[in-house]
């Protein structure tokens, strides 16, 4: 069976001032070609002004089974959000 190139994850900045956002993936032999491929695949309709690529195997992710311990402790810290605080009506903007 003939081999395919490694997989790369593609992140695109839609316009200046925005974050790079995951757009999809491409196969490519190296980083430079991965950028070319990402350009040719994911920005054909003016979707971006900047591209990042990273080898899929280089991504380290959190374990979904550990999602509880990872993310739920933040749930009861509602005092971190501005809506937690009641203000007198006289104070219009704060």
């Amino acid at each position: 069976m003939s081999k395919d190139w490694p997989l790369w994850e593609v992140f695109i900045r839609a316009k200046g001032g925005l974050d790079h956002k995951h757009a999809g993936s491409v196969h490519a032999p190296d980083g430079e070609m991965a950028v070319n491929h990402a350009r040719d695949v994911y920005t054909r309709r003016m979707e971006g002004v900047s591209i990042w690529v990273v080898k899929s195997t280089d991504i380290v992710s959190s374990d979904p089974d550990a999602a509880g311990q990872m993310f739920e402790p933040a749930k009861d810290k509602i005092y971190r959000h501005p809506t937690f605080y009641e203000l007198p009506d006289e104070v219009k903007h704060m």
Binding site: D4, W5, H27, A28, N36, H37, D40, V41, R44
Partner: peptide, 11 residues
């Protein structure tokens, strides 16, 4: 040779 290259050539 691959779909990616196909798209490049079409561009």
């Amino acid at each position: 040779p691959t779909i990616e290259v196909d798209l490049s050539l079409a561009n």
